[in-house]
Nucleic acid binder design. Sequence first.
DNA 1: CAGGCGTAGTACGACAGACGTAGTACGACA
DNA 2: TGTCGTACTACGTCTGTCGTACTACGCCTG
Lengths: 112, 112
Amino acid sequence: MIEISSDVIRGYNDTMILNILMKEPSYGYEISKQIRSISDEKYIIKETTLYSAFTRMEKKGHIESFTADQDPDGNGKKRTYYRITDAGKEYYRSKCEEWDLTKEVVERFIEH
Amino acid sequence: MIEISSDVIRGYNDTMILNILMKEPSYGYEISKQIRSISDEKYIIKETTLYSAFTRMEKKGHIESFTADQDPDGNGKKRTYYRITDAGKEYYRSKCEEWDLTKEVVERFIEH
DNA sequence: CAGGCGTAGTACGACAGACGTAGTACGACA
DNA sequence: TGTCGTACTACGTCTGTCGTACTACGCCTG
């Protein structure tokens, strides 16, 4: 089975994360599971890659973090959630446009 | 105008170069011009990126270098040409397959 | 009741590939 | 004479990914 190498997807980790956050705020572990399932197990993001993406994107102002209880019934456990900002949405949309262009260009160098 | 960022195309520089070398042996400057024109000026590979790709790919055994005269009439000037090897062809084909998969996966995270 | 698994991360250093900057060298052409 | 196009090379920096390792809590099972 062919695997997706991270160098290929490198430019799109942030975009994938943002795509998930466009629907609703979420947190690391959940996002990682979603990427895995949306891609049919074809792409599994590494923990370190994911969490360093959060730090980077928060610095850039594309996401915001907040903590919330793990259970609604609220035992003390907290999780770090992330929410996409307006700047993040803007960035996500530009990345989508960029993708269409990139896809078209790369395709010219691919033989089927 | 949207520009293709290098992180996106990162995993495909080698593939693009190999695509050009699949047709015939070529050399740095010429390959750079071809990438530029095939992509309609949308992707311009940096010199340093290109030449370091040659070194890397030669080490991996995907390409071979040889020198040849710049003009067929042969004044002393030489150029370094590169030729794709069998291993390089194999690698190129696998990258093309990988691309199809990657494209499909990334697309699931893109909104149009 | 001990140990493993799932959940939910953090810390740290290594590495590869792309990039910025700069410099070389030669010929054509104005 | 100087600039443009051709055809590179050298060197150091930066960014993002990855390997490894460690913490901590709760649940389940033997």
